[in-house]
Lab assay of single mutants.
Amino acid sequence: KLATQLLVDLAEGCHTHHFNSLLDIIEKVMARSLSPPPELEERDVAAYSASLEDVKTAVLGLLVILQTKLYTLPASHATRVYEMLVSHIQLHYKHSYTLPIASSIRLQAFDFLLLLRADSLHRLGLPNKDGVVRFSPYCVCDYMEPERGSEKKTSGPLSPPTGPPGPAPAGPAVRLGSVPYSLLFRVLLQCLKQESDWKVLKLVLGRLPESLRYKVLIFTSPCSVDQLCSALCSMLSGPKTLERLRGAPEGFSRTDLHLAVVPVLTALISYHNYLDKTKQREMVYCLEQGLIHRCASQCVVALSICSVEMPDIIIKALPVLVVKLTHISATASMAVPLLEFLSTLARLPHLYRNFAAEQYASVFAISLPYTNPSKFNQYIVCLAHHVIAMWFIRCRLPFRKDFVPFITKGLRSNVLLSFDDTPEKDSFRARSTSLNERPKSLRIARPPKQGLNNSPPVKEFKESSAAEAFRCRSISVSEHVVRSRIQTSLTSASLGSADENSVAQADDSLKN
């Protein structure tokens, strides 16, 4: 292990032709098999893994070397290190390495390699500790012929580059190093199909959405987006994914797998022009299946994007999809995704031109529960009313008269009656009930004795009459309010007539 670390330190600071010789020695160290011998017992696995620490030291050392060589000349050094790393990870899946030390190597290698970024000039870069990406002036992410390196360097940008540029090249004859992302992409596909350690798979799935944002990485080298989509959909639809995973937390289920895969599918929607129609349908189907899991909100957001990006695919699945959405409970976490999906859909009339009455009724059935102001915040309630109004205007004229009683009944049950079921009123009724029952229970537990009763009969009569009056008032709060309003209006009217009579009498006395 110490000798391997010494080789790594020497290679990191070497800029001459001896660098390749040092890498040859490190490569021989990495070539050791990580498969346990067949006769190895389970209690000896930890000791055997400790004997392979030099392999881990070599791989982690290459990660440090690549981070240094990416910004220094010659660029061919970075290319050689990158290829060695990718080849080593491929061996893991070729020979099915399952030892804990092998999983640790893959975890740290993917953690580093999935941080690679590219700008519009195809320059590769890595983020620093502050998250700012520094791009290399010597390494690009696409394949290029050595003699055409300078031509590639002087080509115009596709868009303004992001991030601070690296140091300027030493001279005009500098050759750019090619670090094609397709090599890593193929290893990522192998990981999605064969990885057995949940920690490694979770890391890859968590980092892929951010990497897919940099389309330069994908399009400048032959990366098959179709295969990526197929691998992701197979993970969700195939039963073998959960069987092969180990190291998963207790209670791990298909729902947890959906939570990890759906963000990658959402990021892949922007590549729909490069996906086969069959793959697009598979993607939409997987998102529909996710509606029954805890990732339902993410799936609804993804389907909203699909309705804009892939209208030809979503239009066929939309009638059944809208009916499925009615089975989702009206909760605060689902309110905004569902209502925004319906609001977006209302502005795309070509998608729902074939809707029948059942689909329009489903839209109103989804939106009406969110009009309850005692359960949802003001934004959700306003958005629900907006969706109902928009869809009522957009639905066909023959359907409107049939939906009017349905909508008014839903609004009455969710908006008007919600004020009668407020917690304050319920607590008031509970308190009044307890007050009504309390005197009775006290009389049963403690019967009054005439000799020891010091309270006069008049006081008892007053208290009983007050309790009886309170019971009468607490029967119905709404009736009490109505009666008080009527009494107030009658009182004001009587006072007004009394004032008029007094004024008339005063005038008569003055005349006399």
Rank of each mutant, 00 (worst) to 15 (best):
Q90W: 09
A231P: 01
I65M: 08
P180Q: 06
G247N: 11
E250P: 11
Q67D: 04
V55Q: 01
Y97K: 01
T98P: 03
K69W: 01
D226G: 09
Y143K: 07
W198N: 00
M235H: 01
C141I: 04
L158H: 12
L52S: 06
F219I: 10
L124Q: 02
E195S: 00
Y82N: 01
R117V: 03
V59F: 05
P164M: 12
P165W: 14
F219N: 13
R207D: 01
S51L: 06
K152W: 14
L116G: 02
G206D: 13
E151S: 10
R123H: 07
L124D: 02
C141W: 03
K94I: 11
P164T: 13
A248D: 04
H77K: 01
Y138G: 04
E53Y: 04
W198C: 01
Q227M: 11
S136W: 01
P137Q: 09
E195V: 00
T72P: 01
K199V: 13
T98M: 08
I101W: 02
V86T: 10
L73P: 14
P74L: 01
I101Q: 02
P137D: 11
L242G: 04
M235L: 11
L66N: 01
T57F: 05
S224M: 04
K240I: 06
S196H: 12
H92D: 00
S159N: 10
H88M: 01
L62S: 07
V216E: 05
L124N: 02
D197M: 02
G166Q: 14
V187T: 05
S211K: 06
S150Y: 09
L121N: 10
A173K: 13
G166N: 11
Y93T: 00
S221P: 02
M144Y: 12
R123V: 01
K240Q: 13
G166M: 10
V81A: 04
R244A: 04
R207T: 03
G206L: 10
G251K: 07
L63K: 12
K193D: 14
H77M: 05
P239F: 08
I65K: 01
C229E: 03
R117G: 02
P164S: 12
V55C: 04
I105H: 00
V140M: 06
A78F: 06
V187P: 05
G61N: 01
G166P: 10
L126G: 04
H92L: 00
L188S: 03
Y71P: 02
L124E: 02
S103I: 06
K69S: 03
L91V: 09
E243G: 07
P74W: 02
K202W: 03
G206C: 08
L232P: 01
C139W: 02
P161R: 14
K69Y: 00
S150V: 11
G238D: 14
Q90Y: 08
M144A: 14
F185P: 01
E243A: 11
E250V: 12
R213H: 06
L115V: 06
Y214R: 04
Y181F: 10
V179T: 05
N128V: 06
A75T: 10
L176M: 09
S159M: 10
R106P: 00
P74D: 04
S221V: 04
L176I: 13
V81D: 00
A231C: 09
R123I: 01
S136R: 02
L124H: 02
F185H: 03
L85A: 04
K193T: 14
S182T: 05
L99W: 02
G163L: 11
T220F: 02
